[in-house]
Each structure stands twice: as structure tokens, then as C-alpha cells.
Write a protein that binds this DNA or RNA. Sequence first.
DNA 1: GACTAACCGAGACGGTACGTCCCGTCTTAAG
DNA 2: CTTAAGACGGGACGTACCGTCTCGGTTAGTC
Lengths: 201, 201, 201, 201
Amino acid sequence: MSVGKVNSHLSESDTTGRRRSQRAHQAILKSALAILTEQGYRALTIEGVAKRAEVGKQTIYRWWSSKAAIVLEALTVEAQERLPIPDTGSVRDDLELLLSSTLQELVQRTGPIVRSLMAEAQLDPEFGRAFREDFITQRRAVLFEVLQRGQRRGEISNTADLELIVDLIYGAMWYRLLNQHAPLDENFAQRLLEQIFVGLH
Amino acid sequence: MSVGKVNSHLSESDTTGRRRSQRAHQAILKSALAILTEQGYRALTIEGVAKRAEVGKQTIYRWWSSKAAIVLEALTVEAQERLPIPDTGSVRDDLELLLSSTLQELVQRTGPIVRSLMAEAQLDPEFGRAFREDFITQRRAVLFEVLQRGQRRGEISNTADLELIVDLIYGAMWYRLLNQHAPLDENFAQRLLEQIFVGLH
Amino acid sequence: MSVGKVNSHLSESDTTGRRRSQRAHQAILKSALAILTEQGYRALTIEGVAKRAEVGKQTIYRWWSSKAAIVLEALTVEAQERLPIPDTGSVRDDLELLLSSTLQELVQRTGPIVRSLMAEAQLDPEFGRAFREDFITQRRAVLFEVLQRGQRRGEISNTADLELIVDLIYGAMWYRLLNQHAPLDENFAQRLLEQIFVGLH
Amino acid sequence: MSVGKVNSHLSESDTTGRRRSQRAHQAILKSALAILTEQGYRALTIEGVAKRAEVGKQTIYRWWSSKAAIVLEALTVEAQERLPIPDTGSVRDDLELLLSSTLQELVQRTGPIVRSLMAEAQLDPEFGRAFREDFITQRRAVLFEVLQRGQRRGEISNTADLELIVDLIYGAMWYRLLNQHAPLDENFAQRLLEQIFVGLH
DNA sequence: GACTAACCGAGACGGTACGTCCCGTCTTAAG
DNA sequence: CTTAAGACGGGACGTACCGTCTCGGTTAGTC
């Protein structure tokens, strides 16, 4: 999970003093997302979020270590249940469902946000760690589980390197997302899985 | 090639007036790389490059549109001939050579630089275009050619979607490079190609 | 005495509820003086005093209107009996005693504190009033009484403007204290009184 | 003269680079004075001056070390010729002229400014030095010269301690200015000089 | 050989945002 | 009702860089 330095709001156990303001907490997440979608990540500043959320800057710095940390929380909070793990009994079907819904989400909603966070993860090592732990690893786990179930059922050979398969699928997806050289459409999902599958018997 | 806005030093055809200072040009590239490796991309500023290169800021702005553009030029200039296109007669061998040398280069030298540029490409659309055209597309072209030769030779089926194969190989590589969740070693190269190949008959 | 708004701790007559903590009261005065002497008035903050005194900020705000008010109380409390009114039977001797002890006190202990309070009195009109009433006026009264006794005894002419004499003596003293252009030593005291006295017959 | 650290605009000798903007220089002084007279010293902030003068904060910090330094320059610049040294041939007349015009200036125009600067001089040692050198010492010199001329003419005894006389006159004046316990009017000037003079034969 | 144009270094300029400090107020649980 | 603790909205600080501008000076041609 998160290291805590990057997003320390999780450890809130002290009994003394005034409690954290839920109003401020929510307003900050909401304002950050609003600025992000309206003006883009480059225009996202702590100062701007504070002003829009009608909040002191210190209140932001108290709970988040960077603007990227705010966005990450906003993203993970709202994307919590949107991606249920499919379990149809067929790996191929599960993968199709998972990949389709992931691509749809990226194309329609979170693409730009997710790209910005990946960028920030490269520039800020501490955030990079948090992003990997809070986001990348989570997604990998879901895909891995689907593959594992398929392997147990015998649909995928026992010798297959599932971690590598995950890298291949998500790698190709991210590669297209980041370079924008080709669309992330249904056709891409189909061809990708097809190509993967021939190597899985 | 580059759009020109991003890296306009190529068009230097005027006849009158003082010529561009090669001394300044080289000093800027060198200083940028030095700061980059010593302190990282976050610490790289136009002001810092100017000071270190003993150059006026205007001189930088005259020839480059952003600090990322400087780094991109520094990278492409020096990495020009380091990656010759292998042509052994065997796709598999060619791919092994290409992937190995690419990974080696990333791990030993250019990894952090290339990650920073990919980050910047997400945050600055204009630079993103230049990065894709000057870097990503070039690399894709090399890999594509190797695959195409194999296809002509019959080593790869005629129905194979070569663009997708490129996405799979480079995608997995970038995915690991950006997320740092697993090493970019020889083992990775082998397993990756193996997995790809079973799907290529 | 003080207006009460500035330093309201004097009126403590309520019967119900928890009583004022003497422990906190003393700790605040002590901490303020400690910070003042160790780091100077600029470094003196309510927040700092609260932390050092292990006291809530509210507790300070409840009893004092500003940090200057705390310092003023700390100063007047401890300097209460240090300056007894001399009464030797000779104005000249009384003045010498009074002036010497005052200068000594300033030079050895309270100089920096008193300068800071005079500064604050210029910047904060409300505190200025309290400072004049609790400090300046008190000191003037003592000097005035000494002079008046001399006048009654016939040592000072009946036409002499005693208020003006007070202004001259304390004025010169403060002027040197604030500008630091010359020492506040015994020689200064002697020459000052001498010069004053020729004008008093 | 000024130490340079506090108000470094005096040493402007470099030949290279863009020249200091006179427009900005004047706008800053003017804006500072305007805010000062409209809202008082407490409301005077670097940020406020920058905004009003339509100037970057850095431009202020480049040339002045504090807001007090700005005010000091604004004050000394404009009060340059307002106080000519009187030379009537009579010390008494000269002193009356000098004291009257000084009091008038204080009462009508510069009183609040000068009080704020004296306050700042207590809180900021570095500015204190500059204030003493650029302001206090200047004023003392004028008064001293008048007294000295009188002494040479024989109007004042040769044994009189002129520095002390200066302390007495300006001391009383400042004491009233800072404590506001009595008016700085013509009557005060007359009585003050009278009292001083009996001691000077 | 002067003229002209573009380039060069230096660095001041107006401006934005940073991350920090402290203000004075508020909310909480404990006494 | 006070206390210690500490979060809150807010204002200003002094700093770092941004991209632009204005200097005097340099380095090429072209006339």
C-alpha cells in the first residue's frame, strides 16, 4: 500500500485536537479533478486547488505531499468499484471483458489523468513508488488473478510466465496510451489477445 | 523529422549576419546532459544550463523551444550510430541482438533520460509530437524492418500484424522501464521473444 | 493602569467553572522572556511561546491581546520593586541615584526588551496606549515626584517646568538607548544632570 | 552613508546587462509612500508594493533589503532640501528656526513614517544601522553645526558639551514623538530652548 | 573600410507558483 | 468553563524560474 509519506491521510489515529475536516478533504479532491479536466495537468497548481476549494494551502500540504498525490487519491477513490474482476469461467472471455472495460475507461475518462500521473512518477521518485503501489500493482493483480484462474482450469499452460503476460498486455496498452500513435479501440483489444493467445495454447 | 518549432536549429540558411556559435551550441548540449546526470531532470532548468554553459538565456531560447528539446537533441545526436540494424539472416537472432543492445543502452546509460523525456511528452503536447517523431517512430521503424525482413523470408507468417508485434515488444520494455517493477535484463529479453514467437509460428 | 483589553488578567472574579491555571500563566511569561533573550523579539511568536510553555494557543489569546502584552507584563512584574524612589533629602543626589540605577538596569538587563516594546508601541496603537500607561507614565511619575520634592524644598525654582525636565532627562536617555550612538554610562548621567541643573539654579 | 546591503541601489557600476528601470524604481518608492499614508506601516507589505507599482517582487528584493529600506529612501529622497541649515548670525534664532521647521515637518507630514522607521530600527539591527547613518546622524550633524557656529561666535561657552546638547534637544523631541504624551508645538520648542539656554550662558 | 544585420554574454524586467511561517479562530476530549 | 492539542482559512514571506527585454559588444557578409 501507500508509503504514507506521499499520502498520509490514512493514518489518522490521534485522539487529541481538532479533527480533519471532511468538507475540506472532499473539496480539495473535487477541485483538483475539476481543474485537471478543464485546464489540464500543467495548469494544476497547489495554489489553484487551494483557491478553488476555499482552503488554506497548509491544509493541502498537511495531508498530501504533492499535487500528484492528490490526483492519485482522487483517481483511486472514484475508480474503486468501476472495475470488477470478471469471472465468466473462460479466460479468454474474462480477458476480453477486462481489457475492453479498461480501454473504455481510459479513452472516455481517465486517459489524460493517468498519463499525467505516469509522467509525474518518472520525475518524482517518491511519487513513483506510491503510484506503483497504489495503482500499477493493483491493476496487475487483477489481470494476474484472471490469468491464474485460467491456468488452474487448464486453459493456460502450466509453464506460461503469467507475470510476463501481464507485462505484454498492459505494456502494449500503456505504450499506445503514452505515444498516441494508434487507437485504443476494440480492434486493438481483439488483435492483442489473439496474438497473446497463440503463445498460450 | 522534427516539426521545426521544437528544434529549429536545422534550418540555418540565411547568408547575412553573424553565424550561430558552435561553441555555445555544444556547451549547451553538454551542460544539459551534465546537469541531467548529476542532479536529475527536475533540477534541469534553462537558467541553470545557461549559467553552466556560460551562455545567455536568449541564445537557448533562440534555438530550442524547451529544455526537453535540448535533451532530445543531446540524446539523438549521441545515440545516432550506436544502434545499427542487425541483419544476420535470422529474425530471431536479429531480434535478440536488437533487444539486447537496446536494453543494455537503457540500463547502462540512457534509462533516466529517456524516462524523463517520455514524462515530458505527456505534459507538453508539442514536445510529445517531436518526441514521437524524432525518437519513438525511429525506433519502431528499425524493429519493424527487422520483422518485415523475417516475414519476406517466410520466418514470420504473412498474416501477422507486425505493428502489433512492435507494440508488444517495445510496450513491455517501456512498461518495465517506467514502472521499475522488474529488471530489464537478458532473461527478460529471452522470455519476451519466446512468448512472442510461439504466436508467430 | 492598563485598559484591560490589552492585559485583562487582572479581572478574575468569576466563581463558577475551572479556575485559571497559575502553572500556565507563569510558564507563558517565563517562556516569552526566554525566547526574547535567546533569540530576540523578531523570533518571538505566540505559536513559539505556546509550544515552549506547553500551553494551548487559545490559553494565551484568552488572557493577553498580543505578544507585546505578554512581554510588558513579564517586564513590569519582575521590575516591580527593583526601582525604589530615592529620598535622600537632596534632589541632585536623588536624581543621580535614580538615573544611575535606571541606566544600569537598561544596560545590564532590560535594554533590548524595552526597545522592542517601544518599537511595538509605534506599530500597534492599542499596545502603544498600554505601554504608555503601564510603563512610561509610571517612570515619569517617579522622576516627577523626586523633582517636585526638590522644588518644595526650594532646591529647584518655582517657575521650572518639571514636566519638561522629565522630558529632557528621559528623552536624552531613550534617544541614546534607541539609536545606540553613544554609551549609557555613568559619565552620561553626570554630564546630563549637570547640564540640566545649571538651568534650574 | 548607507552600508549598501540595506540599500544597494547606490552602487550601480556594471557595464553589462540591461539597465535598472527608472520607471520601476520610482513606482516602488511612490507606491510604498502611498500605502503608508493611506493604510499605515502595518499594512505595508512587499507584496502590496509590488502589486501597486506593477512590478515583480524580485525587482524590489534586488534593490532593497526590506520594506523599511524602501521607506527610508523615499523619505530621505524627498526630504532632501526641505530642511536648509539656518544661519542668521544668532544661535538662538537658528535653533528656533531649525526646531520649528523640524517639528512642523513631523507634525504635518513625516511623523508616522519616522516613528515606524524608528520602530523598525529597533527590531532589525541591520536596518537600525542604516537608519542611524542615513537619517539620525544627518540630522544630528545639522544641529551640531548650528551649535558649533554659536560656540565660535562666543554665544555658547567653550566648555559646553555640544553632543550632549544635541541629545537633549532631539531626545526630548523624539521622546514626545514616540510616546505622544504631549504636543510637539511651538510652545514646546520655546520652553525647550529656554531651558537648554540657561545652562549655556 | 564602412555599413548592416544577426548573434552573443549578461542580466534586469513582470510575473507565477513554490513551500513555509504565523496569524487568530475553531473544534475536540479530558479535567 | 478551562486546558492542551492541533486543524482550519488566510496572508505574506523570500526564493526559484519562466520567457521577454535591453544593453554593449562581436562577427560575419555586402556595398
